[in-house]
Design a protein around this nucleic acid. Structure first.
Lengths: 345, 345
DNA sequence: CTGAAAGCGCTTACAG
DNA sequence: CTGAAAGCGCTTACAG
């Protein structure tokens, strides 16, 4: 066994100064309550505590208070590889947690089983609140609901299939589609194509349609195109972007812009366009989604629409903290920004 | 305040079954010690605990046992954006932690101040061991050493400037340089160029030199090239790769391969080569480092050498767990793999 | 075979 | 002005 850590305890200080444990605890925590203490004694206690670098054992405090001073983050790590969406979320969460003096328990889960395992691991028994993020399968929804009903404050950050009665904070698909399209229109596009994904509903597509109609540009069905294969990792890929671009060209569709569903798709599109002798941005302007590191790594820097994951992280914590204090939070879809680069200049 | 969570406690079960708290605790934890219990009573206790979904409060157990059942991870998140090195590390760590039934406290720090703040946040008072990862400034070394001397098991995962007397687990720079070069030589390169970075010592370069000499290829100084600007975020960038490639071409250096210091550099190089009408891989073979998502997103898929971050994560936890149990661990530099793609075929 | 009791290190309502 | 005492929910050496 590793050498045990020596730690200063309240009773050590109390014994040394000849006062009670209670007084030391109260002075140090600042929770005097009805207690009065002589300023010079208070001073003396604080001074000694500082000298000894005393810190209350968080376990004992938590046990006594019934608060853990911690929140749990349960992540289902699906996302476009390299997009850094998850990294930015984590950055936002940890930063905001520090503002509240809270700590973070982190756990990943790959599938439903992983989520059930988590519930068996009792992390939810060690936190004051929980965030569940990712694109998990709806089978875990009832478990999330039941944890919440048992009194655990929970907020999710899921893209689809939100849990009934649980606030959800995520990016704004609708506005992402809309502002990306508006950006192309502002730059002069009259026939922007739209890459879609293999899904029943697509809010981004609605954003695209609304942007067109607000600009009084007639909608042409042939400008909407989907990948040929329905698999999550394929839908947003480089190859999907290439395939859809090939398809547009081969079908002789006239288009002067492309709204991708990811930066990877958009870069795939740019490469195909270039190979076919079509210039970006003079002949076709291209914009992606996520504002990932790929944008500045491609041959021609790619314009993109942000996902605002850092902001989402901040909001998750702010609202979870309020929730723990009794305010049931509202859902939120954070509006995106357009980041303009050479691909749409 | 949010509705308090109702939880089943040991004494609830004990009261209900008319036995002592002690017996319930012992039966459930499986630590009977010298205690004997009638099988049918044992059965009854376990059955009821299961029915009520009883889980011991981890805080109480930890307080009593003096073990927290948790380890801390303190990350200094520098790394090539989009490389996913950090994500993979985290994946390895969390997976291995689950095997040991341990939980993870996560904290980021941007600079020295962040590290000191962390130490004020007492996370190290709530964990059985600590991992410090990244490329932090050496000013925090003494603090790490002193935490360790106070009895906290610590392992680092740092690239340079390891802390004296603290085991360090990271990727193997030397072998990365060597196997990348060997791969190019196997593919027929006789004059591979080597991108270096703006640093005093460069283990990868030594790997390159040894690979050449083992293959009896004479070393030509003009094949070694560095970026023109010394800034961390520039050293490994796309633009650095372009600049170094331009420089090689402009100086009329004859070369038939490139070993990059990152995938971004290598992709920058491939783009420049292509623009200058030089074919990859037939005229110049290119290989990167990190095996990041960029490799399959570039126009021509890029061969790369892995960083093995998931393995590093596993090893960190395995060794930290052993350390907590009393075995002071050794350092380790995990050997890389070559992932062959079109850029070196 | 089983339980009473002490204790992990705090916090706080209550009594002087 | 200050302290004794109870208690958070477990665990375990010890006594029957």
């Amino acid at each position: 066994m590793h050498k045990t850590r020596k730690t200063v305890k309240i009773k050590d200080i109390a014994a040394e100064l000849g006062v009670s444990n209670s007084l030391v605890s109260k002075v140090i925590s600042g929770n005097l309550g009805t207690t009065k203490v002589r300023p010079e004694l208070q001073e003396k206690i604080l001074k000694r505590a500082k000298e000894l670098d005393f810190r209350p054992n968080p376990l004992s405090s938590a046990l006594k208070r019934g608060r853990f001073g911690a929140i749990g983050l349960l992540i289902h790590p699906i996302g476009v590889p390299g997009s850094e969406l998850f990294d930015n979320l984590l950055k936002g969460i940890t930063k905001e947690l520090n503002n509240h003096g809270l700590r973070l328990w982190l756990q990943f889960f790959e599938d439903d089983q992983g989520f059930f395992d988590f519930c068996n691991q009792e992390i939810h028994r060690s936190v004051d609140g929980l965030i569940v993020a990712g694109v998990p399968h709806p089978t875990i929804h009832s478990l999330i609901e039941s944890l919440n009903k048992d009194g655990l404050p929970i907020i999710t950050s899921m893209r689809r299939h939100t849990v009934p009665n649980i606030a959800n904070i995520t990016y704004n698909d609708y506005l992402q589609g809309k502002v990306a399209t508006q950006h192309l229109i502002e730059k002069g596009c009259q026939r922007p194509a739209f890459f879609t994904v293999f899904e029943a509903e697509d809010e981004r597509k609605q954003g695209y349609l609304d942007a067109l109609s607000e600009a009084e540009i007639p909608f042409d069905e042939s400008l909407i195109i989907a990948p040929t294969k329905n698999h999550y990792s394929h839908n947003f890929s480089f190859m999907a972007g290439r395939q859809m671009t090939e398809a547009l060209i081969n079908c002789n569709v006239h288009f002067d812009g492309i709204v991708g569903q990811s930066d990877m798709q958009a870069i795939g599109a740019m490469n195909t366009l270039r190979e076919r002798g079509i210039d970006v941005p003079s002949q076709v302007r291209v914009i992606g989604v996520d504002d990932s590191p790929f944008c500045t790594a491609s041959t021609l820097p790619l314009s993109s629409v942000t996902a605002e994951m850092t902001t989402i992280g901040h909001e998750l914590i702010k609202r979870l903290v309020a929730y723990i204090d009794g305010d049931k939070p509202e859902s939120l879809a954070v509006p995106p920004q357009v980041i303009e680069r050479e691909s749409t200049r």
